[in-house]
Design a protein around this nucleic acid. Structure first.
Lengths: 199, 199
DNA sequence: GCATAAGGTAAGTAATACTCACTTTTTAAT
DNA sequence: ATTAAAAAGTGAGTATTACTTACCTTATGC
């Protein structure tokens, strides 16, 4: 689904590109529909031919980017054989995405959280798929005995997702470089062995 | 500072209470200034006598609540002697706050993140104080040798903060009960010992 | 070659955050 | 007590902006 980039009307594409471009420099709320239309080279009314409202436009832009991100992470994970390798791949690739795709990172980490209808959007479906990927690895690890058994998989998943997001958040907010290997490495260390004195 | 609840004009207090009340049921963006004024029993214009703009009102409400939260967490931590006890107190009390003070939780976890000028507000100062409390514990743990030495304290702090926030996020978003002891317990377990098979 | 639908336009509307000139109340010094 | 001045509060008005609607234009299939 959402695949045929062929049949998409040019105006629709230009509108989505315009928003992506504008979001390189401004937050979503600061961007007006008039500005989007101007940059896209179309009229304001056209936006509402293809998008239910301004937020729906944001969600569809996010969905488009998220599909690429999911493919990228999945491909990277498929290269790894052992559990911790796959876990590391997931974390490392996620951080790498946040580091390089700033518009994507800003949308997912900052913008959509406060928009209520996001959680019924197709873009949120991507979040669930993404989240499920991590959960899958964790379940494997439980089943194989590589991870301790006394943890709730969903809790553990949320702990990891939160840790990843928050370690990247400040860099994304303040446009600072992200030390991808550093963040991913520290995360994996903590997760593997905890913060107790090294064994 | 910010103490004298005496000298505050009644209108100002009523406006802040009105926003808190309205936020029990609605998101910040969905609340209009007209509605705030109506509930407060004052006119719309008065809001702008005491608050720079609508967001500034939100920040001041948050700041007021945050001061109480900080006192509460600090008091709880001061009861604990050993490092892991203090760490557990910080986590447990934070989760308890998110579980019981839903308006506070929603503002800090969901609303302010996308508002650019939040990070120059006094309320953000509270976030820094709060965050510094955790960092203090971690530094102690490093110094005393209770924690492993090869971790960056600030990374570790962000990992923990993110983990706490994210494990509470869905409950807060979807108005579900939070299993305070469960969340805090799992977090402490992971942090202490990692996810490797239990030793 | 024409009907039909899809792509696109332009002017208008309602809502809402915010302003400003003004009035009322409180405070405090003579 | 009187009054000046500062603080508290009002209410009508404005600019912005997301969104609508009726209309035009171009492409597509039969």
């Amino acid at each position: 689904m959402a695949v045929p980039s062929r049949k998409q009307p040019p105006g629709r594409i230009k509108i989505m590109q315009a928003l992506r471009l504008l979001m390189e420099e401004q937050g979503f709320d600061a961007i007006t529909t008039a500005e989007i239309a101007r940059v896209a080279g179309v009229t304001e009314g056209l936006i509402y031919k293809y998008f239910k409202d301004k937020r729906d436009l944001l969600y569809q832009v996010l969905e488009e980017m998220f599909e690429g991100v999911i493919l990228r992470i999945r491909a990277r994970m498929d290269l790894e054989k052992d559990i911790f390798g796959r876990l590391h791949a997931f974390i490392d690739e996620t951080v790498a995405v946040y580091a390089t795709q700033r518009v994507f990172a800003r949308i997912i980490l900052i913008e959509v959280r406060s928009l209520p209808d996001f959680f019924t959007s197709r873009a949120y479906g991507c979040v669930r798929v993404y989240s499920r990927m991590l959960q899958g690895v964790l379940e494997e690890g439980m089943a194989s005995g590589d991870f301790r058994q006394d943890l709730d998989v969903r809790f553990l998943r949320d702990i990891l997702l939160g840790a990843i997001e928050h370690t990247c958040l400040w860099g994304v907010l303040f446009h600072r470089e992200l030390d991808v290997a550093g963040v991913a490495g520290q995360l994996i260390t903590v997760v593997r062995e905890g913060i107790g004195p090294s064994t």
